[in-house]
Design a protein around this nucleic acid. Structure first.
Lengths: 199, 199
DNA sequence: GTCCATACCGTAAATTTATACGGTATCGCG
DNA sequence: CGCGATACCGTATAAATTTACGGTATGGAC
């Protein structure tokens, strides 16, 4: 959504969470209670604004409110050099997966390019389920940024150096002198989803 | 759910579908309309019965109805020899994935045992997303039953024989003389889900 | 046969819910 | 400054929704 005011965004986020946890959209009164409004008319007004901006659809029935945007996780395809990972231009769609499927919260799905993690069972075209994080433990598979390129590798640290290790003997590890170059970690890989009929 | 009557099961199925497509539970009136009841009291009665049997929870509010059972796909773990794949004893849980994620309808998730499909990126411990089917095309990865054992392999047919081919040179193909032994296909693999933190 | 659970109808009341109308206050814009 | 958009309040009302009560009919269990 584009032109949402801060308040409207808060309302929308609340509705999203409400639907997720309660299994149904909130009423005007519930919205008013949650935000401290003393009149359901205030909630009504916000809903109208959200509808006019295309974020929701109202149908007139009790709890007759529908979210327009997909509620799933963003699919990050090709990553443009220099651009933030979740920049709109990188998001190619949404995937209706609940973020709580895995032990760590799933934040987005990243399309895997190339065969460098083949021996870990992560193939070209797979979707890597990523938990957004800027730190990672040794041995974890991470999404890292090296020279403005986003890469998926296994992380090892040793004596002031970080190693980004491919799981494929045809690729050699990337060595980072931590004193010289900071290691930028974008996230931790927590899962893999593959659509076998994607071709 | 166990003790549900046929009618109650129909109602429950309808509610499931309604929530899926409308994003909110149905009212008594909507239920009555859908089933041809001439009084919302009939719907109310069914809901009470479903609540007493633990299938749903009622909360008194408009559309205040919650499904008790997980709505996801059944997770099929170890498969007991001879037992149907989806027998209750084989189902170890439920996974909240919408069945429409893949091109073919996803019916259940099967836990992969062993490394015979390693080179296809299907590893021990992965969950194979399976579409229930009794027929498959050449080249597809299928869930098949051979000598009362469930196995995941790639299917090839040639001159009255079926070959179940592992994607790992350490395993040799299973050859089935179709004239002698029928090939029992349980489903077609349509996807893979791996939880990297499962350990 | 009697009893009980299931599956309906019809009616009606109590409560929720959506929604309209008329205010107040703030803020940025031209 | 006036103006429109945003963000609220208070009150009211029509409509939707839950839910109670009293019936009818059927079929299985004892």
């Amino acid at each position: 959504m584009d032109g949402l005011t801060q308040r409207q965004q808060e309302i929308l986020d609340f509705i999203r969470g409400f639907v997720e946890s309660e299994g149904m959209p909130p009423t005007r009164a519930e919205l008013a209670r949650a935000f401290g409004f003393k009149s359901p008319a205030s909630a009504e007004e916000h809903l109208r604004a959200l509808e006019k901006k295309g974020a929701i659809t109202l149908s007139g029935m009790a709890r007759g409110l529908r979210l327009t945007e997909p509620s799933g996780l963003p699919l990050v395809g090709q990553v443009a050099a220099g651009a933030p990972l979740l920049a709109a231009e990188n998001v190619v769609g949404h995937y209706p997966v609940s973020p709580n499927l895995f032990k760590l919260r799933a934040d987005y799905l990243l399309k895997v390019r190339g065969w460098s993690m083949r021996d870990a069972g992560i193939l070209d075209g797979d979707w890597l389920v990523v938990h957004k994080a800027s730190e990672a433990r040794d041995g974890q598979i991470v999404v890292a940024r090296v020279d403005d390129e986003v890469t998926v590798k296994r992380l090892k640290r040793k004596a002031g150096r970080a190693y980004l290790i491919a799981e494929n003997p045809e690729f050699s590890p990337i060595v980072i002198e931590l004193a010289r170059t900071p290691l930028v970690i974008e996230g931790i890989a927590i899962g893999v989803v593959r659509d076998l009929n994607a071709i």
